[in-house]
Design a protein around this nucleic acid. Structure first.
Lengths: 154, 154
DNA sequence: TTGTATTTAATGTAATTACATTTAAATTTG
DNA sequence: CAAATTTAAATGTAATTACATTAAATACAA
């Protein structure tokens, strides 16, 4: 019996201790799904996140530090992630004009096209959750937010 | 502005797409906390999980495959994780009597003691969430379970 | 201005992880 | 029974990640 059965059978001291395992497990489960979904596109989850951050900039360049700050996942070396995207010709890197320490990164049309392809598959995957009411989703979002905010804001 | 602000400001197409990011982000946030919490004890999260699985066995040995099946995190090479725990003298490894392919793993008293120490810190950390009602925790648990179960059971 | 501290990115490295392969034992099949 | 298949664990390896350090540019302070 695996952990999914543990979760079903409520083998936990308290709802809180179950919640902690449940959040880790479900987060991991989602990551796994995303990982599978991205495989055919030759991107890791981290690379995909960086690409989306770049798209979110709407043509404005963003520095490597800017990327780091926006990343889901702590400091996974944005510098080397950008390297990988460069190798795939999905982004452009150039010295920042006002600050020669910084490096601007911009998404290339090829990057945008790739993201659009992935969007299709993503949207399709999200359809799976349409059986869950939006009210419930909102509820969960609220509680997750509250969960993190017990520590003076995160 | 980082992703935590994105979550606060509801910059998402739908509650569902927010939920997906929120679950990954919160899961990651919890993992990060656990990681910090375990640092003083010289264990990685994976090693800690394996130790807890072994404790859950109540003196009954469990095979490496058994451990893999119970792990939160897919296949992170239980074999090598057990190696690490062996190096730290927290577990014992021996050939399984009925099946010479399999290897039984048992937690040692030192392992149990270490877990007890960690329990203290864990419990202390969980106190942070006592401001959230148990009803809410239950609600979140239910929705997380439902979330995963849209795919014929996970 | 000069020297010090800070910021930004890149790099070195050790550990971890993902994924495939290997080895040995057990199980199944002909 | 022998051969083929499956199962369990270990291992090889390439990629990724975590963490520390370095290098270069900027900001700041005396």
């Amino acid at each position: 019996m695996g952990i999914s059965e543990d979760l079903k059978q409520n083998k936990f001291r308290t709802p809180t201790s179950k919640a902690i395992v449940n959040i880790i497990y479900t987060g991991n489960w989602v990551l796994q799904q995303q990982h599978e979904l991205l495989k055919p596109f030759g991107l890791t989850i981290q690379q995909y996140n960086v690409l989306r951050i770049l798209r979110g900039q709407q043509n404005n360049p963003i520095t490597v530090l800017g990327i780091t700050e926006r990343m889901l996942d702590k400091m996974s070396n944005a510098s080397r992630l950008v390297d990988k995207l460069l190798e795939k010709n999905l982004v452009l890197r150039r010295e920042c004009p006002h600050d020669r320490r910084a490096v601007d990164v911009i998404i290339l049309p090829a990057g945008l096209t790739l993201l659009e392809e992935i969007d299709q598959v993503q949207l399709n995957w999200e359809q799976n959750f349409h059986g869950i009411s939006l009210e419930k989703m909102d509820q969960m979002n609220e509680i997750l937010d509250e969960f993190r905010n017990v520590f003076t804001n995160n």
